[in-house]
Design a protein around this nucleic acid. Structure first.
Lengths: 218, 218
DNA sequence: ACGAACCCGGACCAGCTGGTCCATTCTGCC
DNA sequence: GGCAGAATGGACCAGCTGGTCCGGGTTCGT
């Protein structure tokens, strides 16, 4: 659990090779999300990706290197799914729509499976420093979208301008991750709903001074 | 990962035997907290507890049974540590003292290691239904202490009486768990501080004025 | 005292795990 | 066309993992 994050000599890679590599990472990401990193074997990855042992070790030095690639892919996946909601975020209504999408998403799965990043974080953070750094950077990047949105809300006067957007973003992120965990344990979307409602309600409360703003659409 | 939670025939147990059993569970709990359940081997437990393979399998049918015992012990440990703060909780100040104790606790460890229950939850919740049920019950029990405290705050008029204490407790618990995860990834107590501050600020806000409709959650 | 039942030590094992290796087939490029 | 290097298949392996087993010591109840 101590491999590097950067590819060693930036080897050549044909289009076919890139495709194979991608199939491997994708299969590994799915398996690890479902069964955990420790609970996923290299043989399982080989079978699920329809490749062979030699290919796996051709593209990845060892399991740690594969895990690193998986973290990066999951980070990209999550951001891809969140970006449409967060990119233009500029109102509390927008945030509430984000909340609704998440609650719906979890409700469909009856709470099964955790956050792709959160579950990796919980398993790897104490066991691999490079993984921890990567995961932490992912959280930061993710929060920066929320912070940017909150800043826009402040400009509109929906949120108290004296509050620190980055700190609020961290608080919302914590509510999200904690809500996910509790929803997973309860097999219900309700804890997530309550957690995000609490966090969002907090933003509104900060705005009570100069409210009565004409609430434009997000 | 599918063993039962109840001991089969409630076997006899001498004082000496109970002591040995306890040493095993204690060692297993520490190892699993540090290295995860999957990352802890039975041989490690044997060595750390100073016992032998036959003893381990004398007291526990298999690894799942041991994990069940570990969950119960960790639940007891956490509650034991929290009870002094939560037992008499009846004011926002008291809640803030609770927050301070937690932040200090995490700060000492520089964020390393997660919540004893939270990390078990993340790893086991999707992999073992009996474990999930046990863990969920632990969260419920834990939240009930918070809820009772919030109810007392309502009686004192510190918190809006129309808010549901159980729902607020779930929100605070989510902030706690999420804050823990982010603090672990960031190796800093700050995310936990921000998360709990956000949650507590929310209670206060509810006390200032009875705005905001009761929010029928998902 | 004395048998039954508990407690204990540790050798042993089948299956799995991450990882190696080599022989063969493609592919990009001059 | 032909070669260097990438891509692939899969047999193979040493060490580990959860779990078994048996023989002997200790304690309990009567």
């Amino acid at each position: 659990m101590t491999s590097a994050g950067a590819e060693p000599p930036a080897r050549r890679l044909t289009a076919r090779g890139a495709l194979t590599r991608d199939r491997i990472v994708r299969a590994a990401a799915d398996l690890m999300h479902a069964n955990g990193v420790a609970g996923t074997t290299m043989d399982q990855v080989v079978e699920a990706s329809g490749t062979s042992k030699s290919q796996l070790y051709h593209y990845f030095e060892d399991k740690d290197a594969l895990v690193t690639a998986v973290i990066k892919m999951q980070a990209a996946r999550v951001m891809e799914r969140q970006e449409p909601h967060l990119e233009q975020l500029s109102s509390v209504q927008g945030l509430r729509r984000w909340r609704d999408a998440i609650v719906r998403f979890i409700d469909e799965r009856h709470g099964a499976h955790g956050c792709e990043i959160g579950s990796l974080a919980s398993e790897l953070t104490d066991r691999s420093e490079p993984a921890r750094i990567l995961i932490n950077a992912t959280f930061q990047h993710w929060e920066s979208y929320l912070a940017a949105g909150i800043r826009r809300m402040q400009e509109r006067g929906q949120v108290d301008a004296s509050a620190d957007p980055a700190e609020l973003a961290t608080g919302i992120m914590a509510a999200y991750q904690g809500g996910y965990l509790l929803s997973q344990a309860a097999r219900s979307a309700q804890p997530m709903a309550l957690a995000l409602d609490l966090a969002i309600r907090n933003l509104e409360a900060l705005a009570v001074h100069q409210d009565r703003a004409p609430e434009a659409a997000s």
